Measured scan of single mutants.
Amino acid sequence: MQIFVKTLTGKTITLEVEPSDTIENVKAKIQDKEGIPPDQQRSIFAGKQLEDGRTLSDYNIQKESTLHLVLR
């Protein structure tokens, strides 16, 4: 499925993911596309910070959902 990741600069990245993917996985995909190390990424969805060990389905993130990426 496709999800979108919006950065603070307003750029939107499209990722191909599975509901079973962990947040860690997703951060690795963002690193592949953007070169941002996962330890600098904070992902926010529906106002909640997403934890690395959880999966997209844990957070009820579905296709075409938009995550927000904040850098630390």
Rank of each mutant, 00 (worst) to 15 (best):
V5H: 00
G53H: 14
K11G: 06
P38W: 15
S43L: 15
T22L: 08
V5L: 05
H68N: 06
I36Y: 13
V17G: 01
Q40K: 11
Q62T: 14
E34S: 13
V70L: 11
K29Q: 07
Q41E: 06
T66R: 04
L8C: 15
I36H: 08
R54A: 08
E16M: 13
H68Y: 15
Q40D: 10
I3Q: 00
T14Q: 08
D21I: 05
I36M: 08
V26C: 03
K63S: 14
T12E: 04
Q40L: 11
T9M: 10
F45H: 06
V26R: 03
D21L: 04
L67F: 02
E16T: 13
R42K: 12
D32C: 10
S43G: 13
I44D: 03
Q41F: 15
T22F: 05
R42H: 15
G53I: 06
P37T: 08
N25M: 15
H68G: 04
R72Q: 10
S20F: 09
Q49P: 12
T7S: 05
Q31H: 14
E16F: 13
V70I: 12
P38Y: 14
T55R: 09
H68P: 00
L15T: 00
G47V: 03
K29E: 00
K63F: 06
T55A: 06
R42G: 13
T12W: 08
S65W: 06
G35R: 06
T7Y: 12
G47P: 04
I36V: 09
E24Y: 14
T66Y: 08
K11S: 07
K11C: 07
S57C: 03
P19G: 07
D52A: 07
K63Y: 06
V17F: 04
P19A: 09
D52Q: 04
L67A: 00
K6P: 01
I23D: 01
Y59N: 01
K29H: 04
V70T: 08
Q62Y: 08
S43H: 15
V26P: 01
D58R: 00
Q41Y: 15
M1V: 04
I61C: 03
T14G: 04
Q2C: 10
Q41S: 09
D32M: 13
K63E: 12
A28N: 11
L15E: 00
T14C: 07
L71S: 09
T66C: 05
R72P: 11
T22G: 02
Q2A: 07
G47C: 10
V17E: 00
L8F: 13
T12K: 07
T14Y: 06
V70K: 07
V70P: 01
E16P: 03
L15H: 00
E64I: 02
R54F: 12
T12L: 13
K11N: 08
K29P: 01
T55Y: 04
T12F: 10
I23L: 08
R42L: 15
E16S: 11
I3G: 01
T9L: 09
S57T: 06
T9D: 13
D32R: 11
E64C: 11
Q31N: 11
T22W: 04
A28W: 13
N25R: 14
H68E: 11
